[in-house]
């Protein structure tokens, strides 16, 4: 997995609340058996018209946001299905961090498995960053994972909370499965105990 340390980039504003995973990557793109190549279909139904032409008003189609690496979004981002295609599509497009007041659980979790940092901040902070993102490509935001801060182009800085295990894995690009396998002895002993206690499982 890619490491995430510090990122300075363009942030795109998406003030809509409840952006769901069907919006992020509609189901017709779940038919792949690969993880890559989903970026062109990110937000497909908002981004292209029925003929497949770009809708110019959609934020990521605007010249100043085409290279966005950060999204600033409305409440409850990523609600809906468990599809990991959502973070795969974001990542493939180039988004490395999403900022919102809240995230749906499964989506939030899936981000960390793919080197994307979801940042939860209070409404006031998100409002400031949303305004900053609206300035376009001149406004570069900085996400610093080590120090757990987001800094707007004007220098307004906000700290965010993050689970220490997730931070550690993201900063070091660690693979969860490898880490868990180091605890195989605990799993083995749990399994034999459980087989005694609940043999019907």
């Amino acid at each position: 997995m890619d490491k995430f340390e510090k990122l300075t980039g363009i942030a795109a504003p998406m003030p809509l609340v409840n952006i769901d995973t069907d919006m992020i990557i509609p189901k017709q793109f779940l038919k792949t058996i690969k993880r890559s190549g989903l970026g062109v279909n990110l937000f497909d139904e908002m981004r292209y018209d029925d003929d497949g032409k770009e809708i110019p008003e959609f934020v990521l189609n605007k010249p100043q946001y085409r290279d966005a690496e950060i999204l600033v979004a409305g409440d409850n981002f990523g609600c809906g299905s468990s599809r990991e295609h959502a973070p795969w599509a974001l990542k493939d497009f180039g988004i490395r961090s999403v900022i919102s007041t809240s995230f749906a659980d499964i989506f939030y979790n899936n981000c960390f498995k793919n080197g994307i940092l979801p940042i939860t901040l209070p409404r006031g902070a998100v409002d400031v960053l949303m305004k900053d993102a609206e300035k376009g490509s001149n406004a570069r935001m900085t996400v610093d994972l080590e120090n757990q801060t987001v800094t707007s182009s004007d220098g307004d800085s906000f700290s965010f909370e993050l689970d220490s295990f997730r931070k550690h894995c993201l900063m070091n690009g660690l693979d969860d499965i490898g880490l868990t396998m180091e605890k195989a002895a605990s799993i083995d002993s749990f399994e034999s105990q459980a087989a005694q206690a609940r043999p019907w499982v």
């Binding site: 993880r35 499964i106 899936n110 793919n114 689970d163 868990t180």
Partner: peptide, 21 residues
Amino acid sequence: AHGIGTSEVEHVLATQTLIQR
């Protein structure tokens, strides 16, 4: 019972456990 993402599917297949809080 709860939903998981594909990386977690792989994690459960390999380890029969899930990293959770």
